[in-house]
Design a protein around this nucleic acid. Structure first.
Lengths: 192, 192
DNA sequence: CATAACTCAAACATGGCCGTACGAGTTAGG
DNA sequence: CCTAACTCGTACGGCCATGTTTGAGTTATG
């Protein structure tokens, strides 16, 4: 699944370094979209030179981090049972994935600021498509409101999730209450 | 109301310059939190030196811009009829103020990144208190849900408003549909 | 009208971050 | 064990934004 044929000439320690760098990038960019390459390298326990050995530019690294996060998201999405009532399915989806989305935090903003115009949306396309389809099915089943644009409904859920993450980070919402608040709020918006 | 006694020795043209600079800062920082002082001065039709003549640091300017936006917000809030059903009052409030909040856009993010820790929340306190009180009243009247923390409800509305603004800016939501989408979504979250 | 306030251009110092270059040391893997 | 791959420190050049200085022109206001 992870394209093992890509680089037969890459050593194991390099692979490990890359993984640590991407992971650190996800974490740091998630809380500060302007985190420097130096910060990221340091957090990864790696010299800045090593980082530049694997990622030509900062933008390359940001894209890799976003792609990695989205890959995880796709995995979660694929594992969730989406059958049955669409509302229940969305509830299950949010319950098991909201933290993941929340962790990305400002990573999205970082990518938006550095990557070429439509690139971010392009990368988001696979997971977004699955959510949109779920919403559409819910509409066909009559359990999700039709008086608001479908794209807005998807967006609203997105903003609620990220908002909850911000509130938790700021200490205004208890972490253990967040999942409940997010799912209830999102379902309220979706069902009207 | 605007403390006329503060600076009897400030000339009228200076006052005008300051107003133009603050206005430009609100506009530019609203769409790009990293707008430079040079950008802002240029947009205000003023030399960079004039800007630094009135605002010692960039942070000072950002705070002034945020304070100005919040002052406008307070004015709108004060003008809205908050009597009667709390839901209807909130509907009226959002209808007449969401654009204002939306215009501030990334101004908030800009302030968050530059001002000392609790300063932003401190500035937000007066308007936030009024909204919170309205939500509380709605709860007492039994028209607003009580199964989620009050602070989260207020925050959720905030995120929906800003999200809608983003969607409009990105062209994914028609400007004329936005107010409707925001009020309906927000009321759904509030009423459960 | 005369003074003080204001405006503004150009140039400079500072500092952060990016990306590159050189070069030496370390480690994986055939 | 030996070679190629990898790591990493230091150091540099370039860019951009902040904030200051100088000095001279313009305008409000008493």
């Amino acid at each position: 699944m992870t394209a093992p044929s890509a680089r037969p000439r890459r050593r194991a320690d390099a692979e490990r370094s890359i993984a640590r760098i991407v992971s650190a990038a996800r974490t740091l960019l998630g809380s500060d979209p302007n985190a420097s390459t130096d910060d990221i390298a340091r957090a990864a326990g790696v010299g800045r030179m090593t980082l530049y050995g694997h990622f030509r530019t900062r933008a390359d690294l940001v894209e890799a981090a976003l792609a990695d996060a989205l890959r995880d998201g796709e995995a979660v999405l694929a594992a969730v049972d989406l059958s049955g009532d669409a509302r229940a399915a969305i509830g299950r989806l949010l319950a098991s994935s909201w933290e993941l989305v929340a962790e990305s935090g400002s990573l999205l903003a970082a990518a938006e600021g550095v990557l070429p115009a439509g690139r971010v949306r392009e990368l988001h396309d696979p997971p977004a498509r699955r959510v949109a389809e779920l919403v559409r099915r819910g509409r066909d089943e009559g359990v999700i409101r039709t008086d608001l644009p479908e794209a807005w409904l998807v967006g609203a859920v997105h903003y609620l999730v990220h908002g909850a993450a911000d509130e938790v980070r700021a200490g205004r919402l208890a972490a253990e209450d967040a999942a409940d608040a997010v799912t209830k709020s999102a379902l309220s918006v979706l069902t009207g």
